[in-house]
Amino acid sequence: MKLAAQHHNNAIRRKCWKKWHMVIVEKWRRRVEKACQAKAQEICISLTSDYESKLQSLEEKYNASREEVMSLHKEREYYEENMKKAFMRACALSIWRL
């Protein structure tokens, strides 16, 4: 009888130990999950801000390049117009001399 009672008590202790251990493991798991989630959010925020700043700088470079191309096109048109006028004057002079 004493041996059966001892076995029963040991079985109850093991069950209690397992339940307590599961509770502790679950609490630890939740803490680790929260810490990992917080770290992941922090990393996402820093990556987002880095990429936004890079995007902004690239947009600024793009706009500057576009403005430069536009000014070069205007300059080219100006030179073409001047060359056309000079050619027309040269042609008019050569015809007048004849």
Rank of each mutant, 00 (worst) to 15 (best):
K2D: 00
L3N: 04
H7P: 02
N9L: 14
I12R: 09
R13M: 11
R13I: 14
R14G: 03
C16K: 13
W17P: 00
H21V: 02
H21W: 08
M22Q: 12
V23A: 13
I24Q: 10
E26A: 15
K27F: 13
R30F: 13
R31C: 05
V32I: 07
V32T: 08
V32D: 07
E33T: 05
E33H: 07
K34F: 11
C36A: 10
Q37K: 15
Q41A: 15
Q41F: 12
E42I: 03
I43E: 08
I43G: 01
I43M: 07
C44W: 06
I45E: 12
L47H: 03
T48G: 07
S49G: 01
Y51V: 03
E52F: 06
S53A: 10
S53R: 06
Y62K: 14
Y62M: 12
A64S: 02
S65Y: 09
R66H: 11
E67H: 09
E67P: 00
V69C: 15
K74E: 13
K74C: 06
E75P: 02
E77G: 03
Y78M: 02
E80P: 01
E81H: 01
K84N: 04
K85G: 03
C91M: 08
S94P: 05
R97T: 10
R97Q: 15
L98V: 04
